[in-house]
């Protein structure tokens, strides 16, 4: 059985390599496809357990999960603010500015890693990180569970949702993760377009997408989350961190792996709902979408985008703003 799988894989590989030449030459001359499958729509529904999600929502909004009852998940991840806090950098439990910009919680389930440096594989791991971060939860999941055990309401709720073992660390993390899995924003105009609604995006927006694709933005910003699927160095063509004082946050993935090649490497952020998650970049140093697009073109693609192109690309990016609970995220801003 096992051997067969491997051989099949190798055979497919050989076949594909053989096909490559044909495909490559063909694509050099054919007309450009609208969306070559790089960007996939967000599903309209999730199949998460609604009871667990409801419990997770309560926990997500409860500051008692943190030491001193000061900090809830929702303190930084505000659903009416695009899933983040609208600030350049997150606020610590002491009220100071943290080192990273808050990533949005929306669609975070589709990120292959969580956070800018990508230290967390899963939402559960991310939650542990938030609990134990001295600047955020400043506690541990176990301590939070002990605290919640003194609240009869949670005792009852956990027993109802997790009948076998009730309130445990695993179930606490699970409830939070399940809730976040429910925080998806389907039905963005760009997602409606391939479903057959040709009026969902305008000619300008379409042109913006083509620029986005042809200039190569799409090489990294792709997949369900239009990003969030790979690590990439900031400064492919031009060094970005030379003309400024480098901070801890600027080291990126290096802070998680300690490998030299991971310096200034970040998880490519999702561009979904980018319209409502200003300011931009890992440290929130860029305040407008236009500026972000221009900077990205310069340092990542090695091109100086014209202001017209930038405007069109921004128009396209705004078609990535989805709906949460039937309401466009842009409506709240």
């Amino acid at each position: 059985m096992v051997k067969f799988d491997v051989w099949r894989a190798v055979l497919v590989g050989i076949f594909l390599v053989a096909c490559m030449a044909l495909a490559g030459t063909a694509s050099a001359t054919e007309s450009r496809p609208q969306n070559d499958g790089s960007i996939l729509p967000i599903p309209l529904t999730t199949n998460v357990d609604p009871d667990r999600a409801a419990l997770g929502e309560k926990l997500f909004n409860d500051p008692r999960l943190s030491r001193g009852d000061v900090f809830a998940c929702a303190t930084c991840h505000q659903l009416d603010q695009g899933g983040d806090d609208g600030l350049a950098r997150a606020v610590t439990n002491k009220g100071h500015a943290d080192i990273f910009n808050t990533p949005t919680v929306f669609n975070s389930v589709y990120n292959f890693r969580q956070n800018w440096a990508g230290p967390f594989r899963t939402l559960e791991e991310q939650a542990i990180g938030a609990f134990t971060n001295p600047r955020h939860g400043n506690t541990t999941p176990a301590a939070a569970v002990r605290k919640l055990q003194r609240i009869p309401e949670y005792q009852i709720a956990f027993k109802a949702v997790y009948p076998t073992d009730g309130l445990t660390v695993d179930n606490l993390l699970n409830a939070l993760a399940v809730y976040q899995k429910s925080l998806i924003t389907p039905n963005a105009p760009f997602d409606q377009f391939p479903r057959g609604d040709s009026a969902a995006i305008s000619a300008d927006e379409k042109m913006g997408f083509e620029l986005f694709r042809d200039h190569g933005c799409i090489s990294c910003h792709l997949g369900r989350n239009v990003g969030g699927g790979m690590f990439q160095k900031v400064g492919v063509h031009l060094q970005y961190f030379t003309d400024r004082k480098t901070t801890q946050a600027d080291l990126g993935r290096y802070t998680a792996t300690g490998k030299e090649e991971d310096k200034h490497v970040f998880r490519v952020p999702s561009l979904r709902n980018v319209e409502v998650t200003a300011p931009y970049f890992h440290d929130g140093s860029i305040s407008t979408l236009e500026s972000a697009v221009t900077t990205m073109g310069k340092i990542q693609l090695g091109i100086d985008l014209s202001s017209d192109d930038v405007a069109l690309i921004v128009k396209f990016l705004k078609t990535l703003t989805g709906e949460f609970r039937g309401r466009s995220l842009a409506a709240g801003k």
């Binding site: 099949r8 894989a9 497919v12 590989g13 490559m20 499958g37 792709l222 997949g223 699927g229």
Partner: peptide, 24 residues
């Protein structure tokens, strides 16, 4: 594990060949 692993090779080859652009 072995099944997914084999598929992984396929996905990498597809990406490399430009047949698939999806890394999800």
């Amino acid at each position: 594990i072995t099944r997914l692993d084999a598929r992984l090779n396929n996905s990498v080859l597809l990406l490399r060949a430009g047949i698939s652009q999806n890394i999800d």
